[in-house]
Design a protein around this nucleic acid. Sequence first.
DNA 1: TCGGTCACGTA
DNA 2: CGTACGTGACCGAG
Length: 603
Amino acid sequence: MARHAGQDGQVSTMRARPVEPVMRVADAGELMRSLGEHGVARGSMVAVAIAEPVGLGVAVDGAAWVCATPTPCAVVASVEAEIRPRWLWWSSDTATTLLAAGVRVATCWDVAEVHRLVFGTWRVDPSRIWARLHDLPSSTMPVVGQLDLLGASLDADEGDDEDPVRPDGHLRPEWVAGAWRNRPERVGRWAATAWSAAQLLRRALRQLPDPAVAEASARSESAAELLAAELAFDGLPIDAGTAEQLITDAVGQRPHTDAEVVAQREARDAEVLRHAPLGGGHDLRNPAHVRSMLTRLGIDVPNTRAWRLEALRDVHPFVDALLTWRKAERMATTYGYGWLDQHVAGGRLRGAWSGSDGAAGRMTAQAGLHNMPADLRPAVAAEPGHVFVRADLGQIEPRVLAAVSGDPVLALATKDDDMYAPVASRLGVERSVAKVAVLAAMYGQTSGPAGQALHRMEREYPVAMQYLKDAAEAGRQGHDVRTRGGRLVRMWQTSDEMEPDDERSAMAARGRYARNAMVQGAAAELFKVWAVTVRARAAAFDARIVLCLHDELLVHAPVEHGEAVARVVADGLQEAAHRWMPDTTVRFVADVSVIGRWSDAKA
DNA sequence: TCGGTCACGTA
DNA sequence: CGTACGTGACCGAG
């Protein structure tokens, strides 16, 4: 009990809320009986928190259990095998814990991920999520500070520290920082907070423009985050010998001393510098120096980017040597021996994965997994007894535009394997022009040869063009936009002190950003539905997704199941497309092949 | 030591 | 005056 003096001077009595009772269960069997009595069945949401070696916390609709066991993941595995609920957790950290214990689950509901979807926020720690869901100002959000660490407290009224929620409604910061792992009962209560947060999030989902779509997105985006955890854990199969050889071919033998590193670097530089003009700077790694060298050779360029210099290869041998050098330098620095040593172990390339990142909620990956040069793809090889099933979506963004905008004419074009062909004939232009026009419309390009074709686009595909225009206008005005799947894309505000020209430029940039995010974001959502569908169906063949690349999937499968998995991937797209958009007037296509190395795929 | 810029790889 | 991302080298401010 604590007494508060309100601002009106009245003394009110505020009782700390009662601590959630947590029931003890002895083992998985007892837990499953309890869950069964609460109506938990296949696919039911079950909140879970794992603290090794303290125990397993589980919560369902006001009831919470704890199983004090040094091997909580094994209990999860038993429940998964018997019941297969939809595991509800604060974040995919739980998935990572399970994976480390060798436990894989089928489905989940990820509070952090859904929060990111609904609110478009980057930071999704439980404190922030909880505060926002309870309309508590983040200014009052407590943090673990020096005093707390010393055991002192600034606020006398902190209630019962066995309660994860403080009297002021905020989550207890020391719990968020890890104190929930300290005792079995706390693990149970922590699971209960995840359950409670999820109920509030579901309420938010139901208030979005299309609740059914948003709830489906919550499930698929959660599963994508689970897939991201698995991708990080499993890694991409790499034939290290081939990788080593490709690097050697590109940059020479592996150096063994610092002196060798320097010597190789200087040898690479010398190949270019012998063509360089006299005087001035000679640092090839400094764009200003490179530009001045080019100037002294009579070549005047605003920057030294490869696409600009490409046209000038024949003007002077220096240019050709420089471009060749740049490619080797990239290999030596970013994708060289250092990269191999740092990220490849046990025949797998591993990096951190995010299930949704950036403006549009695409998956991202580190360790070069998403920008590995095509030259290195031969090193991505299936393990003995395995194959890759590789698939990529064809013309995904324009097809998605047809779907989300509901443009019936553009939808008709998707019936073609190559939708640019019917678009070209409708616009009365070459296919290449039609393609540029469609891409220009989606990316907000206004200059260049796409200009005239864009006007015809507006005449022939007014619904799709209006959809893009509305998104761009919202962005220009600084209004947040929401993708078809319900992801909030936040706009930034322009500064009051901006010059008018700068402000116009910033607004235009926002317009392009919003326009693109609506298409790219929706495409990411469809892609993830496809990926998690394939993940689920391929498991029966002991096949696992090992790479997601925006519109491309790489699945590692036992060789005897290659063809079956290829069918899973192809059928999975139709299943995913139907789930993502029940209206089937827009057709989606994928190119699927069974290969041994990533480079075996046809370009 | 840090953020910004350039550059370049992928989609 | 085409978008998104990750990475590395360098610069200049702190």
